[in-house]
Simulated scan of single mutants.
Amino acid sequence: MSTAASGFSHLLRLSDDTGLFEHARYALVRREHGYCTDDVARGLVVVTREPRPAHRLTRLAECYLTFLTHAQDRSGAFRNRLSFDRRWSDQPGVGDWWGRAMWGLGTAAARNSAPWIRNEARLAFTLGAEQRSPHPRAMAFAGLGAAEVLRAIPDSTAAASLLTDAARAIGAPAESPSWPWPQPQLTYANAALAEVLIAAGELSDDGQQLAAGLRMLSWLCDVQTRDGRLSVVPAAGWRMDAPRSRYDQQPIEVAALADACATAARVTGDQVWQEKVRRSVAWFQGVNDADALMWDQATGGGYDGLTEHGPNLNQGAESTIALISTMQYARRLP
Rank of each mutant, 00 (worst) to 15 (best):
S161Y: 12
M216T: 00
T263L: 10
S176E: 02
S178T: 15
G269K: 07
A194E: 03
G228V: 02
P154D: 00
R246S: 10
A189G: 12
P243S: 00
A191H: 04
L210F: 02
A260K: 00
A152R: 10
A200N: 07
W179D: 05
T263S: 09
G201M: 03
P180C: 02
C221S: 09
A191L: 09
I198G: 12
P251H: 07
D227S: 14
I153N: 03
I153H: 08
L220F: 11
V254N: 04
S218Q: 14
P173D: 13
P173G: 13
E202H: 09
G213P: 07
A167H: 06
C221A: 09
D241W: 15
R266V: 01
R246I: 12
A147K: 01
M240R: 15
A152C: 08
D259G: 05
S176C: 01
A256H: 06
D248C: 14
R151I: 08
P180N: 02
A212E: 07
L163W: 03
D259L: 08
P154L: 00
I170F: 01
V233M: 04
L257N: 04
I252G: 08
E175R: 13
A199G: 06
S176N: 02
P177F: 02
Q185G: 10
W179E: 06
A194Y: 02
D270T: 10
A212M: 04
Q185K: 11
A255N: 11
A199Q: 08
D165H: 14
Q209H: 06
P184A: 05
D222C: 13
A262P: 07
D241Y: 15
A256E: 04
W219M: 05
S176K: 01
A147W: 02
A212D: 08
R244S: 07
V223W: 05
R229Y: 13
Q224N: 02
E148S: 13
C261Q: 10
D248K: 14
G213S: 09
S178N: 15
C221G: 05
Q274G: 02
A236S: 05
A160M: 01
P184N: 05
W238L: 01
Y188E: 04
Q274Y: 04
W273S: 13
L162D: 02
A264N: 00
P243L: 00
A191W: 09
A191S: 09
S161G: 14
A191G: 04
W219P: 07
P173A: 13
Q183G: 11
E202I: 04
D248N: 12
S176T: 00
S245V: 12
A258T: 12
A192T: 13
A172I: 11
